[in-house]
């Protein structure tokens, strides 16, 4: 199925409130004094529980899109709505709040804090958000990613797959509306990668957590409900299953 981005976007709007919505978003960066356009007038809407894979070459704007979706950055022009709230309308603390409540991140290189144990890593977002129930939720979450018993291990005592599972647990512990995963399998062997992809699939299905995953891997993309192909900062095509 192929659609013009504009029509697709409006179609989503008619179907209900998308969880993440890009409206004519452009993003410029300064690199070595040169203005580089990372996203160019892009519009996209992602609905609740949708598992979207972002594919495209390096530098096509995948990471920028994730950052904008995660309220880590503002668009140069256009609007990004996160669960209906335009990020540009928020100040730093507002962004922090929206991130705490609605966004979870997973990274290619896991990004666990090396000085914290597995469970401490997992409960960190809750602690930062000031929630008192961190430990129980974290334990549950670790159990869900099949790491019960590894709570007190330090990151360097874990395998890559385990680390990424801890990272997933950490990203989900506060029940975010959106999970943003940047090449989550990029640093993993096939077995571990498959396991992670299965987890992500389950997240979307079981938790109804909207998942936006940037990936190079076709295998990974194949797991998604929707595949968005980016090219030079624009949506080249959207494949919906």
């Amino acid at each position: 199925m192929e659609m013009k981005p504009e029509s697709r976007s409006s179609a989503t709007l008619t179907a209900g409130m998308p969880v993440v919505s890009f409206q004519a978003v452009s993003k410029d960066y300064l690199a070595d004094g040169q203005k580089v356009r990372a996203l160019d007038n892009l519009s996209l809407g992602i609905e609740e529980g949708e598992f979207v894979a972002l594919v495209g070459r390096s530098g096509c704007g995948k990471s920028t899109l994730l950052n904008l979706a995660g309220a880590m950055d503002f668009p140069t022009s256009g609007r990004v709505l996160l669960d209906g709230t335009p990020t540009s309308s928020l100040n730093d603390s507002g962004l922090t709040c929206i991130r705490r409540e609605k966004v979870g991140f997973i990274f290619q290189s896991f990004q666990l804090l090396p000085t914290l144990s597995a469970i401490e890593n997992v409960e960190l977002p809750l602690l930062l958000a000031g929630s008192p129930t961190g430990r129980t939720a974290a334990r549950e979450m670790l159990g869900w990613v099949e790491l019960a018993g590894c709570e007190d291990r330090m990151p360097h005592q874990l395998s890559g797959g385990q680390m990424q599972r801890v990272a997933i647990a950490r990203a989900l512990v506060h029940s975010p509306r959106v999970l943003l995963a940047d090449e989550p399998t990029g640093n993993l062997d096939t077995t571990s990668g498959d396991m992670i992809l299965n987890l992500l699939r389950r997240i979307a299905t079981e938790h109804k957590t909207t998942t936006l995953m940037a990936t190079h891997s076709l295998e990974a993309a194949a797991m998604a409900d929707t595949i968005v192909r980016l090219r030079d900062g624009r949506v080249e095509e959207v494949l919906r299953r």
């Binding site: 995660g70 880590m72 730093d92 922090t96 991130r99 804090l113 977002p125 930062l128 958000a129």
Partner: peptide, 9 residues
């Protein structure tokens, strides 16, 4: 990373 995880400045 802490900022990603919801830490305020």
């Amino acid at each position: 990373l802490l900022r990603f995880l919801g830490a305020a400045t």
